[in-house]
Simulated scan of single mutants.
Amino acid sequence: MYFELAMTLFLYGAMLRERALEVLSSDLVQSATCFRRAAGVYNYLAQKVLTNLNRSQEKQPEAMCRVSSIMSLVCLADAQAVTARKAEEDGKTSGLLAKLHYGITEFLIEAIDILQVVNKECKDISPRLLDFILSCKIIHELKSYKYLVRGLNNDGKIGVAIGVLRRTLANSKKVVPKEESWRLVFKQVFNDMTVLLQKHEHENEFVWREKVPRNEELPLPQGVKIVSIIPYEPQKWERTLVFKL
């Protein structure tokens, strides 16, 4: 019965995430809340339910604790992405936006690390999951650097901004999303930063004439994670079922 409960909750988490995506364009607060609730469901699965399965039941991805942990982290990253979008709309500072987007990157790095372990244990996980998480990581990392550069520009550090842009664009060329839809998003952000670099280089050549620091002298973004799971509370029928088991 634990297996059936686990599959039901896994589906419930997916439905909450789908709901979050549905309301994203109309209600950012509700969307973030749904993502956090989904993260709570997956966390509950990993911590309280899937640990009770026997080894034969753990073979499929949805029954693996680590997969639920990955999904919880992805949902938290989604929730923070919505929060960052709200912060952008509210006109928050470039420094805060850079930290929010890099915080998303940190959630996703943690998910990728777990997924790499899972892929050694289970061959049934679609490679599209890794590509999806990597794509999100790349895009939010680019956005964090974009806002970092904007902050440097506001502080009059044009040379440093140019160095950060050059390094970021060079590194970004090494990892491009495989999925066409994600490549389009990546290309848009990449092109925006390329235009920004050209603008800064032109201004620096004719106006500021600042020295561009070496890569090792350039600043790195600092991430903050400001979202957390909304803990899942088992329903009455679940508590009764577990008691009987």
Results as ranks from 00 to 15, higher is better:
2 Y>N: 03
3 F>T: 01
6 A>T: 02
11 L>R: 15
18 E>F: 05
30 Q>A: 15
30 Q>M: 14
32 A>K: 07
32 A>T: 07
35 F>S: 03
38 A>Y: 04
42 Y>S: 13
48 K>I: 00
50 L>Q: 13
51 T>G: 01
60 Q>V: 04
65 C>D: 06
76 L>D: 02
84 A>P: 05
92 K>M: 10
92 K>F: 06
92 K>R: 15
99 K>V: 07
100 L>F: 02
102 Y>Q: 04
104 I>L: 06
104 I>Q: 11
109 I>K: 13
111 A>V: 06
111 A>E: 07
113 D>Y: 14
115 L>Y: 10
117 V>M: 14
118 V>N: 14
125 I>S: 05
128 R>N: 14
128 R>A: 12
129 L>W: 08
135 S>F: 04
137 K>W: 03
149 V>Q: 01
152 L>R: 02
153 N>A: 12
156 G>I: 05
156 G>K: 09
160 V>R: 02
166 R>H: 03
175 V>R: 15
176 V>K: 01
198 Q>S: 14
201 E>R: 03
206 F>Y: 13
207 V>T: 13
208 W>F: 11
211 K>Y: 07
216 E>D: 13
218 L>C: 09
220 L>K: 13
223 G>T: 10
228 S>C: 05
229 I>N: 02
230 I>M: 06
230 I>T: 13
231 P>W: 03
235 Q>W: 04
236 K>H: 09
242 V>W: 07
244 K>M: 11
